[in-house]
């Protein structure tokens, strides 16, 4: 069934979009991720204008993270104080992201920046995750128990001033890296149309040493509010949030996520992380190929003023 999108101004097959939302929702439920980094490229590759894809996925991420936040809230697995400080940075980063987004769009370099960022971040994070998960699998096979929390160990981040105590996370760290991390994730999320959970979670664990049982809930909490802000900023700035596209993706996404979550319970954590790492690397590689291979068409056009601009 074809459905005309009011903002993207093109008709799409609603079942294809619904299916995409469902498939990405399944994976996000399986791995406990937002799935934005998969959904945005899928939409772009299927012919939705990049600006509309990015802005609309921020809305979809709000839906997928809000249902998870409720669950973690009930389990009391969210550090509200940490989440709120992260979120302040996130909203600020998102605002800068929307401004830069419009500048890049007007000089015609948005697509290449999106592609390059995907290659860089997905490549780096995917590589790290793959490396880490392989080590974890080896460790498990060789029977060595993984080391528990190392409260005594400190890195350079713990030497920064403006320290704050986070009771639930059992942390005493400076707010500078917390705000900075929130801002970077908010900024990238707004430009790339991703929640950024796959970057936030490792950063919280390895840089700030947030306990793993608090990490996901807190990360989702910050993503929910940062992406809500990004949606509003995109609506006001780029005016490319397509509410019809977003609704279709959301409904597919939340249903898919339920099945994914159930299947995820039957897989081991390190196996899941390795699969996710391979998925992240594959998406990064896809963008890299597009950047490096000689394009089929050297020319492209963009409407600047008048009808449909």
């Amino acid at each position: 069934m074809q459905l005309y999108l009011p903002i993207a101004e093109i008709p799409v097959n609603i079942f294809v979009i619904f299916g995409m939302g469902g498939a990405v929702g399944f994976l996000s439920g399986l791995f406990g991720i937002g799935g934005g980094f998969l959904l945005t490229p899928l939409l772009i590759f299927s012919g939705i204008p990049p600006a509309v894809s990015v802005a609309t996925v921020t809305t979809q991420v709000v839906a997928s993270s809000s249902s998870a936040v409720v669950t973690y809230w009930r389990r009391k697995a969210i550090d509200l104080k940490l989440g709120t400080i992260l979120l302040c940075g996130g909203v600020f980063g998102s605002l800068i992201g929307v401004v830069l987004f419009q500048v890049l769009q007007s000089i015609g370099q948005l697509d290449v920046v999106i592609s390059l960022s995907y290659v860089t971040f997905l490549g780096a994070i995917g590589g790290l995750m793959l490396f880490e998960s392989i080590r974890a699998i080896r460790r498990r096979k060789s029977g060595v128990a993984p080391k528990a929390r190392r409260p005594g160990q400190h890195n350079w981040i713990h030497g920064l001033p403006l320290k704050v105590r986070f009771r639930r996370s059992k942390l005493y760290v400076s707010v500078i890296p917390v705000v900075g991390l929130g801002a970077i994730i908010g900024f990238l999320g707004t430009i790339l149309g991703i929640g950024g959970g796959f970057m936030m979670v490792p950063a919280l664990i390895y840089l700030l040493r947030v306990p793993t049982n608090i990490v996901i809930g807190t990360s989702l909490f910050q993503i929910l509010f940062t992406m809500a802000a990004a949606t509003v900023f995109h609506s006001m700035g780029t005016k490319t949030v397509d509410i019809v596209l977003a609704m279709t993706l959301m409904i597919g996404g939340v249903i898919g996520a339920q099945f994914g979550a159930r299947m995820g319970q039957n897989l081991r954590g390190d196996q899941l992380r390795m699969l996710l790492a391979l998925l992240v690397l594959a998406v990064g590689l896809r963008f890299a190929i597009d950047l490096l291979l000689t394009p089929d068409d050297f020319y492209s056009i963009a409407i600047r003023k008048g009808a449909g601009a």
Partner: peptide, 15 residues
């Protein structure tokens, strides 16, 4: 924008 966010939160909550 606020409407889009509200719809998204509602959908997520409902699910």
């Amino acid at each position: 924008g606020v409407l889009a966010v509200s719809l998204a939160i509602f959908t997520g909550w409902l699910a």
